[in-house]
Amino acid sequence: MDALKSAGRALIRSPSLAKQSWGGGGRHRKLPENWTDTRETLLEGMLFSLKYLGMTLVEQPKGEELSAAAIKRIVATAKASGKKLQKVTLKVSPRGIILTDNLTNQLIENVSIYRISYCTADKMHDKVFAYIAQSQHNQSLECHAFLCTKRKMAQAVTLTVAQAFKVAFEFWQVSKEEKEKRDKASQEGGDVLGARQDCTPPLKSLVATGNLLDLEETAKAPLSTVSANTTNMDEVPRPQALSGSSVVWELDDGLDEAFSRLAQSRTNPQVLDTGLTAQDMHYAQCLSPVDWDKPDSSGTEQDDLFSF
């Protein structure tokens, strides 16, 4: 819950932080000083300027060897085509990944977070970031790969997607708890209302004896509580940590079903599988986004697919 609360507080303090972009060759504004600060901008989305290598189908939802083989196929196909790589912007948030063309600003792909089953910074092609997700059109699994400016960037994108998945799962947990509370309150309110109706004398007997209905007592009954809980029953509950912020979080049926399955089948359902080692994760978390744009010590960066 700490990640969720800190993310909400950060967004309320400075929503404009989320509009910064990394990996864009110096076009961005001043960047936060450390990885923790940038992680807090996830709610509205972190932007990464990358190059799209392509996509291939895979048979399993996750796995280092599986993704490595898929990336190898994608890279080989991209090299064989001889075409310049498409420059894209990857927007990562707890909602998922939005992929747009840098030149036309046209939407290429919009992947809900619950469809993503794996992401990684490839070991062999260490400047490549990739994720595996279920197609929104059918049940097939797709591996999408992107060329980053350097290994640090690939690791940073991988960690960002993993963190977005974690925050999304926490949102789901909060929403589920809130819905259970509202359902319980609604049920209790309905029981109270039913009890009051059972003990209320029939209207005919009131008229016969000349008694008047006590409207004041009726007004004191917990009807307002019942209506408050039943009027918006169809509205999706939102985490309290975000009250007053500009973010509107809505959970669709697909996300609810997917996270429910994860909660039942996995020990740590909030953790998205990645190909990063503990050492890689520690190294990337210690980086400032400013470091992502620094040239690798191995030599001059080449803006070309064939540089790796």
Score class of each variant (00 low, 15 high):
residue 242 L to P: 14
residue 48 F to Y: 14
residue 141 L to N: 15
residue 219 A to S: 02
residue 75 V to R: 10
residue 173 Q to F: 11
residue 11 L to D: 04
residue 135 S to I: 08
residue 74 I to P: 08
residue 65 E to T: 09
residue 194 G to I: 05
residue 140 S to D: 12
residue 195 A to C: 04
residue 159 L to K: 12
residue 226 V to D: 06
residue 206 L to K: 07
residue 300 T to L: 02
residue 73 R to Y: 15
residue 190 G to N: 10
residue 163 Q to S: 12
residue 119 C to H: 00
residue 234 D to N: 04
residue 48 F to W: 08
residue 111 V to W: 15
residue 57 L to H: 05
residue 225 T to F: 07
residue 283 Y to W: 13
residue 172 W to M: 01
residue 159 L to H: 11
residue 282 H to P: 04
residue 44 E to H: 14
residue 141 L to Q: 09
residue 174 V to C: 08
residue 54 G to D: 05
residue 106 Q to D: 10
residue 225 T to N: 07
residue 123 K to E: 10
residue 237 P to N: 07
residue 154 A to N: 02
residue 124 M to H: 09
residue 12 I to V: 09
residue 195 A to L: 05
residue 69 A to N: 14
residue 39 R to Y: 15
residue 253 D to Q: 04
residue 129 F to T: 08
residue 26 G to N: 02
residue 297 S to C: 08
residue 58 V to H: 12
residue 115 R to S: 10
residue 292 W to A: 00
residue 291 D to F: 01
residue 153 M to Q: 01
residue 79 K to G: 13
residue 266 R to P: 01
residue 71 I to Q: 03
residue 146 F to A: 13
residue 259 F to A: 02
residue 256 D to C: 08
residue 298 S to K: 05
residue 162 A to W: 08
residue 150 K to H: 00
residue 63 G to Q: 10
residue 65 E to L: 14
residue 51 K to S: 12
residue 226 V to S: 06
residue 221 A to C: 00
residue 157 V to K: 11
residue 101 D to C: 12
residue 239 P to I: 04
residue 256 D to G: 07
residue 146 F to V: 14
residue 36 T to M: 11
residue 191 D to E: 15
residue 302 Q to D: 01
residue 236 V to Y: 00
residue 183 D to F: 09
residue 217 E to C: 05
residue 94 P to D: 03
residue 171 F to M: 04
residue 80 A to E: 14
residue 169 F to E: 01
residue 120 T to R: 02
residue 292 W to P: 06
residue 93 S to C: 11
residue 72 K to W: 14
residue 269 P to Q: 01
residue 157 V to W: 02
residue 157 V to G: 05
residue 138 N to Y: 14
residue 210 G to W: 10
residue 170 E to A: 15
residue 168 A to D: 01
residue 163 Q to N: 08
residue 125 H to V: 12
residue 257 E to T: 04
residue 129 F to E: 15
residue 35 W to K: 10
residue 238 R to F: 03
residue 113 I to Y: 07
residue 197 Q to R: 05
residue 149 T to R: 08
residue 250 E to W: 06
residue 170 E to S: 07
residue 85 L to M: 14
residue 75 V to T: 15
residue 70 A to W: 08
residue 94 P to Q: 10
residue 122 D to L: 05
residue 69 A to C: 04
residue 84 K to E: 12
residue 11 L to K: 05
residue 19 K to Q: 12
residue 254 G to N: 12
residue 238 R to D: 07
residue 140 S to G: 14
residue 55 M to R: 13
residue 208 A to C: 09
residue 103 L to Y: 02
residue 166 K to S: 12
residue 255 L to G: 14
residue 82 G to S: 10
residue 296 D to L: 09
residue 9 R to K: 02
residue 215 L to D: 03
residue 20 Q to D: 12
residue 230 T to F: 02
residue 176 K to I: 09
residue 292 W to L: 00
residue 174 V to Q: 00
residue 27 R to D: 11
residue 58 V to I: 15
residue 205 S to H: 15
residue 164 A to F: 11
residue 135 S to V: 14
residue 145 A to R: 06
residue 66 L to T: 02
residue 77 T to C: 03
residue 193 L to A: 01
residue 80 A to Y: 13
residue 151 R to G: 08
residue 276 L to I: 01
residue 155 Q to C: 11
residue 137 H to P: 12
residue 96 G to W: 06
residue 173 Q to Y: 13
residue 203 L to M: 02
residue 269 P to V: 01
residue 282 H to A: 00
residue 221 A to M: 06
residue 299 G to C: 07
residue 181 K to M: 12
residue 102 N to V: 15
residue 249 W to I: 06
residue 74 I to Q: 06
residue 194 G to T: 01
residue 134 Q to P: 15
residue 129 F to H: 13
residue 150 K to F: 10
residue 124 M to E: 12
residue 44 E to W: 14
residue 219 A to P: 10
residue 238 R to A: 14
residue 211 N to W: 06
residue 218 T to N: 08
residue 77 T to F: 08
residue 249 W to N: 07
residue 218 T to W: 04
residue 304 D to I: 00
residue 150 K to G: 15
residue 187 Q to R: 10
residue 255 L to D: 06
residue 187 Q to C: 07
residue 202 P to V: 06
residue 300 T to N: 00
residue 212 L to I: 04
residue 302 Q to K: 09
residue 17 L to A: 15
residue 231 T to C: 08
residue 288 S to W: 08
residue 64 E to P: 06
residue 148 C to T: 08
residue 279 Q to V: 04
residue 88 V to P: 11
residue 256 D to Y: 15
residue 287 L to I: 14
residue 158 T to C: 05
residue 213 L to F: 05
residue 307 S to M: 07
residue 12 I to T: 10
residue 297 S to G: 05
residue 281 M to K: 13
residue 286 C to V: 07
residue 236 V to T: 05
residue 173 Q to D: 03
residue 210 G to T: 09
residue 112 S to E: 00
residue 208 A to T: 09
residue 17 L to F: 04
residue 118 Y to A: 01
residue 110 N to C: 13
residue 282 H to D: 06
residue 171 F to R: 03
residue 278 A to G: 02
residue 175 S to E: 00
residue 306 F to S: 09
residue 40 E to I: 13
residue 12 I to N: 11
residue 244 G to Y: 01
residue 271 V to P: 03
residue 203 L to W: 05
residue 294 K to C: 01
residue 269 P to W: 01
residue 78 A to T: 15
residue 200 T to R: 07
residue 13 R to F: 14
residue 267 T to P: 02
residue 280 D to A: 02
residue 259 F to D: 02
residue 177 E to C: 02
residue 280 D to I: 00
residue 182 R to V: 09
residue 9 R to D: 14
residue 101 D to E: 10
residue 273 D to F: 09
residue 37 D to I: 03
residue 5 K to C: 06
residue 193 L to H: 03
residue 7 A to M: 11
residue 174 V to I: 00
residue 307 S to P: 08
residue 89 T to F: 10
